Amino acid sequence: ATNIVGKVKWYNSTKNFGFIEQDNGGKDVFVHKSAVDAAGLHSLEEGQDVIFDLEEKQGKAYAVNLRIK
């Protein structure tokens, strides 16, 4: 899925991951530091509006192509 809109539920910059809540009511999506770095960001803030693509690997969904809304 592409261009999914959501809000950062939480992001832990020490542990380098967090979760994004989808605006469409879907399951929360894992986001890793690598996606944050690829977006040219240092971190994510709770409540921040983002747009992302959804990829699945080994049955787990995660956010890629992250951008600030």
Rank of each mutant, 00 (worst) to 15 (best):
A39S: 07
V31R: 00
A61M: 14
V29F: 06
V29R: 05
Q58G: 07
A35G: 04
A1I: 13
H42N: 09
E56L: 15
K69F: 09
V36D: 00
I68F: 09
V29L: 05
R67E: 06
D28Y: 06
N16M: 10
S43A: 12
L41K: 11
L54P: 01
E46M: 09
A1D: 10
V64D: 04
A35R: 05
E56H: 13
V29H: 10
G18E: 00
N16A: 11
I4R: 08
A63M: 02
K57H: 10
R67D: 05
F30H: 02
V5T: 05
K57V: 15
Y11P: 01
G18L: 02
Q48M: 09
R67F: 05
V29Y: 05
A39C: 03
A63D: 00
H32T: 04
K27G: 13
S34A: 11
G18R: 00
Q22I: 14
E46Y: 13
H42C: 05
G26A: 15
K9W: 02
I51W: 06
D53M: 04
S13L: 15
D28I: 07
I51N: 07
V8W: 03
D28L: 13
A63V: 09
K69Y: 07
L54W: 10
G6C: 01
S34K: 14
T2V: 08
Q58C: 04
I68K: 15
G25Y: 10
E45K: 13
V64E: 06
Y11N: 01
V29C: 04
E45Y: 07
S34Q: 14
Q48C: 04
V5A: 14
G25C: 04
R67K: 10
E56D: 07
E55V: 11
L66D: 00
G18S: 01
K69N: 13
N65R: 12
Q22L: 10
E46S: 11
D37A: 14
N16F: 07
T2K: 07
K7I: 09
Y11A: 01
K9A: 05
V50Y: 04
E55C: 04
F52P: 00
K33W: 10
F19K: 03
K27L: 12
A39V: 09
